[in-house]
Computed example of a mutant assay.
Amino acid sequence: MSDLKADTQRIRECSRALQRIYHSFTERANPAEDFSATELGNHHIVDAFDAFASNWKIHRKDLAAQIKTLGTITWEAAKSYDAIDADLAAALRRQDAKSKKGTGHA
């Protein structure tokens, strides 16, 4: 029998991080949209970011949906691990109580 260990707090942190990434993906199409050519260095950099943003818009929606799904999966996994752990602990406590009363099975 193998030992299964799940750090549900870490899994939830992962889910929250994915949620933040999802919001970043859906809120901004162009990472340089608030910057001028002066701030970025020159107009070639601005043009490169504009080209990137155009291509990014095409793939961003699918990628954002996949990130959102992964965030949901990780959140639900943490909930499931916690529920399984609680159910197992309750079953073991019931078995211990039965054993103490002499009604347990070997």
Rank of each mutant, 00 (worst) to 15 (best):
Q19A: 12
Q19R: 13
R20K: 12
R20G: 01
R20M: 04
I21V: 15
I21Y: 08
I21E: 05
Y22G: 00
Y22L: 00
S24D: 02
S24M: 00
S24A: 08
S24Q: 03
F25K: 09
T26F: 03
T26I: 10
T26L: 06
T26R: 08
E27T: 01
E27G: 02
E27W: 00
R28N: 08
R28L: 07
R28V: 03
A29F: 02
A29R: 05
A29N: 11
N30H: 07
N30I: 04
N30S: 12
P31R: 01
P31H: 01
P31E: 00
A32W: 02
E33W: 00
F35G: 09
S36F: 04
S36N: 06
A37N: 06
A37E: 06
A37I: 03
A37D: 04
T38A: 11
T38S: 12
E39F: 14
E39S: 15
L40N: 01
L40M: 02
N42Y: 13
H43F: 10
H44R: 09
H44M: 09
I45S: 14
I45N: 13
V46I: 11
V46M: 07
A48K: 08
A48L: 12
F49E: 04
F49K: 03
A51F: 12
F52D: 02
A53T: 09
S54E: 15
S54Y: 14
S54N: 15
W56T: 06
K57S: 11
I58S: 06
I58W: 04
I58N: 04
H59C: 15
H59N: 15
R60Q: 04
K61T: 06
K61N: 09
K61L: 09
K61P: 04
K61D: 10
K61C: 07
K61F: 05
D62S: 05
D62C: 03
D62P: 01
L63N: 00
L63W: 01
L63D: 01
A64W: 02
A64R: 02
A65F: 01
A65S: 05
A65V: 01
Q66N: 09
Q66S: 09
Q66Y: 06
I67Q: 07
I67P: 06
K68W: 03
K68G: 03
T69K: 06
T69P: 03
T69S: 06
T69Q: 07
T69F: 05
L70D: 04
G71H: 05
G71K: 04
G71T: 00
G71S: 05
T72H: 11
T72C: 11
I73Y: 10
I73W: 08
I73A: 12
I73F: 10
I73Q: 11
T74E: 11
T74D: 10
W75K: 14
E76V: 05
E76C: 06
A77K: 05
A77C: 09
K79A: 14
K79M: 14
K79D: 15
S80A: 15
S80Y: 13
S80V: 13
S80E: 15
Y81L: 10
D82S: 09
A83H: 15
A83C: 14
I84W: 13
I84M: 13
D85I: 10
D85N: 14
D85K: 14
A86I: 10
A86F: 10
D87V: 07
L88C: 13
A89K: 13
A89G: 11
